[in-house]
Amino acid sequence: MSYSAWIILTGCLVGVTCGVTGALLVLRKMAMLADAISHTVLLGIVGAFLVTQSLNGVPMLIGAAIVGVLTAVMVQALDSSGVQSDAAIGVVFTSLFALGVVLISFIGDNVHLDVQHALMGEIAFIPWDTLTINGVDLGPTAVWMLGGVLLLNISIILLLYKEIKISTFDPQLALSIGVPVVFIHYLLMTMVSFSTVASFDSVGAILVVAMLIVPGSSAYLLTDKFGMMLILSGVIGALSALVGYGGAVLFDVSISGAIASATGLLFTLCFLLSPKHGMIAKWFRRKKMQQSV
């Protein structure tokens, strides 16, 4: 496969992985918790590096999952001790992120881990970092990692489809019929952390946040059906990657920044043009109503 094909594939995988997970977060009104986790995961990555002294994928996933769940737990603890939830999110993620950034600056320059990289990612280098098993070149590591996480996320969603759906729309009912609501909450947080860390290396923190929140929000404007929204969100994520990559090549700018901007562009289109919830459709309906009166 050619160089740019690998980049496009990576971008689309990020879009689908984060898009599907993100749609759940948007529905559960936890978008800002996703923002928080995608920042604090940096601490998990740095921590994993300090412990193992290598930039290996598996310890990083574990570190990220620990810090991701820790973020959710800390926010929850502050929230239930009487701190309003947005401030609780704010104080937890800025603290952990700041700690991660300070720790990174202690790590020497010879290690391929710095703040710039963590924020913006280096998707352009993805095709060179390949996975080789028994001397066979299997393609970029990032593609394998993203593919694995995507598979994991989709199987979790398919397996627990009903439970996730009920606990999203009616937590009280879910609790009363014995659905493990708390378990699903933290399972979801783990999925977010995994998606984040798998995407982190290639696209950086900013794009992860954009991919988690924006496609889900766009899909929320397009449909009222739960399953449809998850699919649409993944599709929009992948589409943003394609549009963004095109833009980045055209103007010779940061790929992850351009993809984040593309998610914004698609969101604007949905916001204006969605047949049911779009601004223009609403305006026409209002106009019609006035005429019929």
């Binding site: 794009l207 946040v209 992850s256």
Partner: peptide
């Protein structure tokens, strides 16, 4: 105000898209 998007998602959308666009301009 004009859609069914809740405040937290709205903040997230605006924040990430603006920052992403900022990075685009920075690399430009």
């Amino acid at each position: 105000k004009h859609s069914r998007i809740k405040t937290d998602a709205s903040i997230g959308v605006v924040l990430s898209v603006f920052f992403g666009f900022g990075i685009v301009l920075l690399t430009y």
